[in-house]
């Protein structure tokens, strides 16, 4: 009788475990076909450039595109500035120097897939633990994320 009572409680974790494992394995075997994966279960590209819609290196001219900077600044002021400072921590980390330690693709993926980044990427996981607020997806399109990168590059050069 008492044992029976626990059966539902036991079954759930077992089923869950099983299904999670099955999913994980599936994922990995798929990846194995394409590329080597690292310890975190991410590809080298993902580890360095983030997880999200940007899956290849993008070409970036050394020269700053001022039109793109303006576009990026407008989006930043509307959709990012309430949480980020250029200098100094706010809701999120300061972004004035982000281009120094992150690749453009990483920044774009963070903007375009913040929940994925904080769940699955070791850097994102760490940041979430530190800031304790999840950065939201701000309905930014890929070309707009690219413009924000240009704005951040421009800021870094001038400051």
């Amino acid at each position: 009788m008492t044992f029976l009572k626990y059966i539902p409680k036991l079954i759930l974790p077992i089923v869950l475990l099983f299904s999670l494992q099955a999913c994980g394995e599936d994922d990995r075997s798929q990846r194995d076909d394409q590329e080597e994966t690292t310890e975190a279960g991410l590809t080298e590209f993902e580890l360095e450039h983030g997880i999200g819609p940007v899956t290849e290196r993008i070409e970036i001219d050394d020269e700053i595109d001022q039109e793109l900077v303006t576009k990026g600044r407008n989006i930043y002021e509307m959709k990012c500035e309430m949480c980020h400072n250029m200098e100094g921590r706010m809701v999120g980390p300061q972004l004035g120097d982000v281009m120094e330690h992150r690749s453009p693709e990483f920044v774009m993926n963070f903007i375009l897939n913040p929940s994925g980044m904080t769940r699955e990427h070791p850097v994102g996981q760490e940041l979430l633990q530190e800031y304790m607020t999840s950065m939201p997806f701000q309905n930014v399109k890929e070309d707009e994320a690219r413009a924000i990168v240009e704005f951040l590059r421009d800021y870094k050069r001038n400051n």
Binding site: M78, M82, P136, F137, Q138, V140
Partner: peptide
């Protein structure tokens, strides 16, 4: 409300 996430 400056959020752009559903239901926030």
């Amino acid at each position: 409300n400056l959020e752009q996430e559903w239901d926030v």
